[in-house]
């Protein structure tokens, strides 16, 4: 599994695409945080990173499908998956290697945002006037959110030989499970009846709940079962591909 893990990471940076994807992510995030007035930290008079954690899911919707789109699609298309499957590796070695590889790449992309934390920390008055516990909770929320998006994107990638299709399907499904249920729950006939149930099915509800800094076991279970579900779907699809 670690051999696959390492390969995923080095391969990502072996082509220009890797740098472009992460570069675009960080540029976009910085613009949103420091320049655009609606979210800008400087306009906002409180020392928090709330904006970061509000914007991040939106950007993850594109970043993560972009990181994962190659993972199975490309290997299926060029046939290297057949090489992996005839090496002493289980399906889980391959899937988890790719899963943790992609998650580590997401982590690398997010790492520079610690600078924002430091900036806010030093800009605050008095210095250090920021709720660090909440920030840690929010990063954990991002980790969970990242995991489930990666699992969804891997599944999209195993469904198609075409990277562009894999990207679009992944982004669409992530969007649907993140925002979709909230939109539906806002439909007038659901309000006051099953709207809170619908909200709880969506990812957004649980992400915000964790981000508030209170880690509830129900949210953790929600994320873990989502990840496990999509990884199992991925495995079944891989096994099915192999039968032919």
């Amino acid at each position: 599994m670690w051999a696959i893990f390492r390969k995923e990471i080095t391969n990502f940076f072996s082509s220009l695409t890797g740098y472009v994807v992460i570069g675009v992510f960080l540029t976009f995030l910085s613009l949103m945080m420091w320049v655009f007035p609606e979210y800008s930290l400087l306009e906002y008079n409180y020392a928090t990173l709330d904006q970061l954690f509000e914007i991040a899911p939106m950007i993850f919707l594109f970043l993560i499908p972009a990181i994962c789109m190659r993972s199975f699609s490309e290997e299926k298309q060029i046939g290297t998956l057949e090489i992996l499957f005839t090496k002493p590796l289980t399906e889980w070695d391959i899937i988890l290697g790719k899963f943790f590889g992609a998650l580590a790449l997401v982590g690398l992309a997010v790492l520079p945002t610690l600078i924002y934390y430091y900036s806010v920390w030093s800009l605050g008055s008095p210095v250090g006037n920021i709720d660090s516990g909440e920030v840690i909770g929010s990063y954990i929320g991002l980790l969970f959110l990242g995991s489930i998006f990666v699992a969804i994107s891997l599944y999209a990638s195993v469904l198609s030989n075409n990277q562009v299709i894999a990207f679009l399907v992944a982004a669409f499904v992530c969007f649907l499970v993140y925002y979709g249920f909230e939109f539906i729950s806002a439909v007038p006939s659901f309000v006051g009846t099953i709207d809170d149930v619908l909200q709880k099915v969506g990812i957004g509800f649980h992400y915000r709940s964790i981000s508030r800094g209170a880690i509830d076991s129900r949210d953790v279970i929600y994320f873990l079962s989502g990840v496990v579900l999509f990884l199992f779907l991925t495995r079944n699809q891989l096994i099915e591909n192999r039968a032919n």
Partner: peptide
Amino acid sequence: YLPEHNPLYLD
């Protein structure tokens, strides 16, 4: 095992 068409990671 060497599969048909010899698939490789070109990068």
